[in-house]
Computed example of a mutant assay.
Amino acid sequence: MDEEGTWANYPIPWYTLSEISEVSNEAQKIHGCIRHGHILIHAHAHDSHTTVAVGTYLHRTGKSVHLRGEDHLRRVSDTFDSPAQALFAFEQVHGAEMRPGPAPLTDTERSAAEARTPLALATAKPEPAPPEPETVPVYLADAGDHDVLLDKFLNAHSEFEKWRTWSDETTHAIHESQTLRIERVHETQPHETAWTVAAYETPVSDRMWVLTATGATPAPVLQWMLNHLADSDGWDTAIDNPVDEKTVTAATQPLSDAG
C-alpha cells in the first residue's frame, strides 16, 4: 500500500459508495482535461502496476501536477507551482521508467474513443433522406425476385406440389388435379423464357393451352397471374366448357383494351 492509502491502482476496500463516486468523478474531470488539451502531459512512467504522469494545467490555475492511476481511478497525487519543480520531483522518483509525453490509451479509453467515432460522423454527415416513391405503370415495374414470388405462392396454395429437377435448375409446381403445371427455370437471361404454364384436359391428354413469361416480366404481373391460376375459374379445362372463339375473345379482352 502506498502513502496515499491505495493498493496500487485499486481503492482501499473500505471506501464508501460516496467516496468511490467522488474518486470516479474526479478521474472523469482529469480525463476530460487531458482529452481536450487543458492539461499538457510532459512525461509518464509505470509504477506498481499502474501509470503515473506529470503535467501542467493550461487553462485553469496554471499549476503543475503529478497524476496517478488509470481510467476511473486517475487522481492528482501532488501539486507544484511550476513545471520545472514538477518535472524535477517526478524524475527523482521515476527517472528509470520516465518516458516523454502522455501514456498510451488504456483499453477502456480506446473503446470509448471508438464508440464516439460513429456518433461524430453521424452528426457531421447526416444520412440523406430516402427518395420519394415513384409510381410507374405495371408493365414498367421491376422484375423483382421471381424465386421468392414462387415460394410465397406455393406456401399459400397447398393444392400445388413442388418438384425440383435433378440439377436444381428448374422447379415444377403441379396442381393436385395434374391438369395444370407451372415450370420455373431459375437461371435465365432477362428476355429468355423463365416461366411456362400449361393446362391439360386430363392428366394424360395433350396440352390445351400454354403461357410463357420471360425473366424480365414485372413482379406484379407474375403475382397477378399466379393468383389467377390459383382460382379454379381461371383455367377450367372441363370438356363441357370448350375453348372457342368466344372464350378466347373474353380471355384476351384485357390485352386488347391495353393495345
Rank of each mutant, 00 (worst) to 15 (best):
M1Q: 12
G5R: 06
G5F: 00
T6V: 07
W7L: 10
W7M: 10
N9K: 07
P11N: 03
I12C: 09
I12F: 15
I12A: 11
Y15F: 15
L17E: 14
S18T: 13
I20Q: 14
S21R: 12
N25A: 10
A27I: 01
A27P: 00
K29A: 14
G32W: 12
G32I: 08
C33F: 06
C33S: 11
H38K: 11
I41V: 13
I41R: 00
H42A: 10
A43L: 01
H46D: 12
D47V: 03
S48Y: 09
S48H: 11
V52L: 04
A53W: 02
V54H: 05
T56W: 00
L58T: 15
L67H: 07
G69P: 09
R74S: 02
D78N: 06
T79N: 08
F80P: 06
P83Y: 09
A84D: 13
A86V: 04
A86T: 02
A89F: 07
A89L: 03
A89V: 07
F90S: 09
E91M: 05
Q92A: 06
Q92C: 12
V93K: 08
H94N: 02
R99M: 06
R99P: 00
P102T: 04
A103C: 04
A103K: 00
P104Q: 03
T108A: 15
T108W: 13
E109G: 02
R110S: 03
A112V: 14
A113Y: 05
T117N: 11
L119Q: 04
A120T: 11
A120V: 12
L121E: 15
A122K: 09
A124S: 08
K125H: 11
E127V: 14
E127R: 14
P128V: 03
P130T: 04
P131H: 08
T135R: 06
V136N: 05
V138Y: 13
V138T: 10
Y139L: 15
L140Q: 12
A141R: 09
A141M: 06
G144I: 08
D147C: 04
L150D: 06
D151L: 02
K152R: 15
L154G: 01
N155E: 09
A156K: 05
A156M: 01
H157T: 01
E159I: 04
F160S: 00
E161S: 08
W163E: 12
W166L: 12
T170K: 15
I174G: 03
H175Q: 05
Q178V: 01
T179V: 02
R181D: 01
R181T: 03
I182G: 01
R184K: 07
V185N: 13
E187A: 08
Q189T: 14
Q189G: 11
P190N: 02
H191S: 11
E192L: 07
E192R: 01
E192T: 07
A194C: 09
T196M: 08
A198Y: 03
A198M: 15
A199M: 14
E201L: 11
P203A: 04
R207H: 05
M208D: 09
W209A: 14
T212D: 12
A213W: 02
T217L: 15
V221S: 02
L222Y: 00
S232T: 11
S232Q: 10
D233E: 15
G234W: 04
T237C: 04
A238G: 08
I239F: 14
D240C: 09
D240K: 08
N241L: 10
V243F: 10
E245A: 01
V248L: 02
A250K: 03
T252E: 05
T252W: 04
A258R: 14
G259L: 11
